[in-house]
Structures are given as structure tokens and as C-alpha cells.
Design a protein around this nucleic acid. Structure first.
Lengths: 334, 334
DNA sequence: CGTTATAATGAAATCGATTTCAAAAATGAG
DNA sequence: CTCATTTTTGAAATCGATTTCATTATAACG
């Protein structure tokens, strides 16, 4: 294979020094028109492509940022990722995609990789673990949190949604339609989003003087449609008494839906349903599913914007927490 | 901020040379136990983390591969990405995520970035354009195609599905259920997947001696649910005569579904439907939607495996085309 | 026209690792 | 115990750019 063309080759071809070539490449200092043309032509002639690696080594910037998400195949995170990617692309940054699969060990391993690759920043959809490590790392690399807050990391910028208010709105909607025994399905109560959405659920009930019934707060052991469906089907089989369900995220919602179908129940007559996190498909169900919509794309964009800001001027960095509004999309499942 | 710890610092601390430190780091040559321990301890004490950048510059490998996809927020590509990520992670590679959004200019721009970042390989879900550029680039960097074949790039390994057979199966299913006037909805007929699926459609009709009716081959101008819905609603309004629809991908399927709902038609009585590309939600529709399932995760895994193979031994590289089988998931929409 | 400020340039150092090469130390054979 | 191997080791070169620093050319001004 032909040896790679380097800046030396260009300087030789253009009859100038590597420094000058570098200057036309980066625009870091003025260059006479004559030299610039010579360099540009040499670049063209030799089909030269500068090595980002070499550049990064010397200049200490890589123009890449790490993107850690729990599940890129989850449409919510997929859209978040697109928002991030769009904004990153606009600013000339590349993304290093890391899928943690909710596994803290994998998260930590990836954070180490990102450090050694010297990314300029990190957007982190955290598992909820590795807190000390993340705090320490954030002193070397700008980190912006997305989707989930991280207890003890208040000095990090974050882009979140109003989980509590959104949930409260969802449950209130159920209450206003006459439901009093409202079940709630969640996963991992210690994860920030789950905790906040639970709080919203409790808040709505309290506000309407409905007693909290622990039997209606259903925890599923694993975050998957199948696991949720199994738990819910058991609930139906056991004849647990409730008339409505609030699912705390889209996978849980799908599990509930699946159990409802398997148990041959009708929505909303046998059981009403609201899901936190909307899907374009929900409007096509019969009946269409009422859901809390999250501005996924905007979450991504904002997160990247906060990160860019912090990377551009790490000196006067001030943590910012952006909380975006969710919206209740009323359909016909309640 | 504290100056970064380098290999020099370690060598000093451990009372040895940088070369030796490098040797314990990479295991490229034997090191005595005494020295090794001293180095390891120094690394521990100073909290040293080697710079991948510097390493890559010298050793010419980056342990990162580019991942170009058209739409990471599309669940199909999301699952493909997970398959790739899983396999890449296992082999110690990082992914650079590039979303092309079906835009050839963006695709080319990204390919250039990947070259300058000196990725060890590229997995490409191509827009269908930039063929010459891709061919040229593939002489410098291993490239594996996913999802779509690329005319004139037969020397590239690729992981595809049996689009033609799958489509034929889908349409045959409609025919066997008595349908004769079967519409087909597609986008960009020159894109490989669309062309192959169209061929499958035509093949099934031919086999059953049903004449092809160009009026039933519907092209939508843009790949989006809204655009498809608009076109289909017009078809319904115009009273075009067909009893079944075959949608060539998931977005098109959603658009059709949306139009059917807006036009208050019933499935399968007013119109039957099969969608190429299944969704976990399809089984929850009423009626559940019949679809062609693609092994998305396996596509990703296989693509990464082919790439790994090629990267490990570029010398005796032999292009391989893996065609994975699709499966008809019979539900109740036909 | 001389003097000073500014613009343009190149030589050399640098970024932080790996790799090459040669020398030193350890081991084994006779 | 000597000589030939084989292991370990470190000095120095290297990867391919940017950056610093000193120098030369050019412009501006009184």
C-alpha cells in the first residue's frame, strides 16, 4: 500500500516549510497568497488528508465527544441520540457511541476508554452507579447528564424532563376520569427518573385524597417487555383490584399492553392506561393510547449545546440544569 | 489543572526507561517480574492513564470503527447498531456514530472525517450515492456494507437480508388470502432494498399470473410517516381500486396505517396489510399486523464480525456477502 | 532615507506513546 | 569456567501534526 502523504510531503512539493502548511491548514496565522496557493495546489496534487491523530496529540483537542446511553435501540434514546448528533455535527464534533445496557461495569469501562481517547466532552445517560468515578472524571472532562439526574453530581450540567409534574399530570388525568384504584408499574425505584415519576404519582393521589396502596406499586424485576408482561399478567390473574395503570416508561407500557392483550381485557373499559413516554405508534392503537410525551430530540440538542458551551469555555463553567416540559397527549385509553 | 501523567513520569517513578513501561503496558516484549511490579506500582501511585492518541499515532491503529447509518432513531437501525456495538465492545473497539439522514453530502463528509480520524474500519449503511468515493476509500480502509447493497461495490463485504424472497413471501401471503389487486408502497425505487423488495412483489404476482398494474405501485416523495400517510389518504380518497397493501419498510407501514385510520377503514376487511420489517408493537395492534421480520441484531453482529475479520488480516481479504433470512410473522391483518 | 512596527517565514521543539537497535545481563551448553 | 545464546533493558528515532521562537521581508511613518 502506498505510503501516506504527510505534511512534509506537502511542504516539499510546495517549496515551503511544514509550519507554513500547517498555517494554511488551520488558519492560525497569516500566509501570503502566493504560498497559500502553492500549498493548496500541492494538497490537491498529492491528495493529502491531514491526520487528526497527529493533530490531536499536539493540540490536545480531538473534536470528539463520548455518548453513553443505556439502550440505543430504545426509540426514546434513539431520538435523543439524533438530537445530539445533529448538534454535534453542526459544530464539527464526532460522537463515540457507547451502549451501557444499564450495566454499571460497562459504563465505567467505557468512561475509561473515553478518557484514554481524550474526548473533549461526554454526554452521559447514566446507569445511576459509578458516582464517585464520574465525579472525579468530571474534573478532567466536561460531562453533561441526560435523561437521569445523578445524586451527588449537582455540579454537572444536566438536561432532564419534569418527570414529577408529568407523572402527576398523567395520574390526575386518570383520577379525573373517575379512577381511584390506580396501579403504577416501575423498574428500579432508585433510578432518578423512576423515583421522580413515582413521586409525581404519589403527589397526584395525595392531592385528590386517595390513599396510597403499596399493593398497587408494582416493581418489575428487569427492564423488558417480556418481564413486565409476565408480572402484569400475574396481577390480572390474581385479580388484584385496580381500574387503571400508569406505566413509568415505554418498555413498561408495552409490557402492560401485552399483558392486557393476553388477558383479553379491554381498554379503557376493563382497565385504563397512561404511559410515560409517547410513541408515534400509540395513535394507531385501538384505542389510541394516552401518553406523556417527552421532547426527546430537544433533550439531545440541548445536552449537546450545554456541552459545547462548557467545552468552549471551561474556565467560567457554571453548571446548568435544563428541565424540559413534557406534555400529556390525550387519546382514548383512559 | 494538574499536568497529565505521562509514560515518562512512570518510567522515572519506577526507575526504568519508557520503553520498559511501554512493554508492560502492551506486553509486546518480556519484562522481568521486578521491573513489571515497579512499573505497575508507579502506574497505580501516579494514577496513570495512557493516551490512546499518542499510541495510535505511533502504532497506526486506533481501535475505533466508523458507523454510518441513515437514521439511528429508526428502531430497525437502532437494533442493528446494538448488534454492532455489542460485537465491537467484545473485541475492544469503539464506534464513531455518524447519522447521514439519507443525505449523500453528509455521508461523504463523514467518510472524510473517518479517514482523517484513521478509523480501522467502517460499517456503512449507505445512502446509495458516493459510489466512486466509497470504492476509492475502500482501498485504504476496510468497509463492510449493511442493509443495502451498493451497485459497483461487489468487492465489499456486505450483510443483507433476502429482500426479494421476503417480499415475495409477503405478497404470496396476500394472494393466498384471495387478494388480487395488491398495492405496493415504496420510497426511492433506486435504493437497493426498495428495488429488491419491488422485485419480490413483481415475482409473486407473476408467479400467480396477476398482471402488474403500475397504478398500484405507489412512490412516496419522502421517507416519513407523514408524507406516506398523505399519499395514501389521497389514494383512498380517489377510490383507487385495491384490496391489500404491501408497505416496503416500517416508516411506510406506519404511514399506511395512519392513512387507514384517518380514512376510517377496517383491516383486513376494507384493506389487508403486510409490512416489510416487523415491530414489537405490531402484535399489540388490533388487529395485529402481519409483517416480515428482519434479524436486525444479527445483521449488526455479522457486519461487525466480517469487519473484524478483514481488519485482522487485510492481506488475504476475500469479500463475503452474508444474506440473512427474513421471516413472515403471520398475524391478523391479512 | 532611516527607523520602527508588523507581516511572513522556517528551524527546531514538542505532544506521548511505540519501535528499532544495540548493549548489558542472565542463562545454558560443553 | 568460557563461550554462545537468549532475555532484558535503555537510548534514540519515530509517528505527523502544531507551536514556539527567532529571523527576514514588508510597510508605515516622521
Amino acid at each position: 500500500m502506498a505510503r501516506k502523504v504527510t505534511i512534509q510531503d506537502i511542504s516539499r512539493e510546495a517549496g515551503t516549510s511544514p509550519s507554513t502548511v500547517s498555517r494554511v491548514l488551520t488558519g492560525s496565522a497569516p500566509v501570503s497568497d502566493a504560498k497559500r496557493d502553492a500549498v493548496l495546489q500541492a494538497i490537491e496534487r498529492l491528495n493529502y488528508h491531514p491526520s487528526s491523530i497527529a493533530r490531536s496529540l499536539r493540540s490536545k483537542v480531538t473534536y470528539s465527544v463520548g455518548l453513553l446511553l443505556n439502550d440505543i435501540s430504545n426509540p426514546f434514546y434513539g431520538v435523543v441520540a439524533r438530537g445530539i448528533e445533529d448538534e454535534a455535527n453542526r459544530a464539527g464534533y464526532s460522537l463515540i457511541l457507547c451502549n451501557t445496557n444499564e450495566d454499571p461495569a460497562r459504563e465505567q469501562q467505557y468512561l475509561q476508554v473515553l478518557r484514554s481517547k481524550q474526548v473533549d466532552g461526554i454526554i452521559l445517560g447514566p446507569t445511576g452507579d459509578n458516582i464517585d468515578f464520574i465525579r472525579e472524571l468530571s474534573e478532567q472532562i466536561p460531562i453533561v447528564l441526560t435523561d437521569r439526574a445523578l445524586p451527588g453530581c449537582d455540579h454537572l450540567s444536566a438536561v432532564l424532563v419534569d418527570n414529577e409534574a408529568g407523572s402527576c399530570r398523567a395520574v390526575t388525568q386518570l383520577i379525573e376520569n373517575g379512577h381511584k384504584r390506580i396501579a403504577m408499574v416501575r423498574w428500579q425505584k432508585q433510578v432518578a427518573t423512576m423515583a421522580q415519576r413515582t413521586a409525581g404519582y404519589e403527589w397526584a393521589l395525595r392531592e385528590h385524597h386517595i390513599a396510597l396502596d403499596p399493593a398497587l406499586m408494582i416493581d418489575v424485576p428487569a427492564l423488558s417487555v417480556e418481564s413486565t408482561a409476565a408480572v402484569m399478567q400475574q396481577m390480572f390473574a390474581d385479580g388484584v383490584d385496580f381500574t387503571a395503570i400508569f406505566a413509568l416508561n415505554n418498555q413498561l407500557g408495552l409490557g402492560v399492553l401485552s399483558a392486557i392483550q393476553a388477558s383479553a381485557l379491554r381498554i379503557p373499559d376493563d382497565v385504563a392506561l397512561v404511559v410515560f413516554d409517547d410513541s408515534p405508534m400509540f395513535s394507531l392503537f385501538s384505542p389510541p393510547i394516552t401518553a406523556i410525551e417527552q421532547p426527546a430530540f430537544a433533550i439531545g440538542e440541548q445536552a449537546m449545546r450545554l456541552l459545547l458551551k462548557q467545552m468552549q469555555d471551561p474556565e467560567h463553567y457554571q453548571p446548568e440544569t435544563v428541565v424540559l416540559r413534557t406534555r400529556l397527549v390525550k387519546r382514548e385509553s383512559v
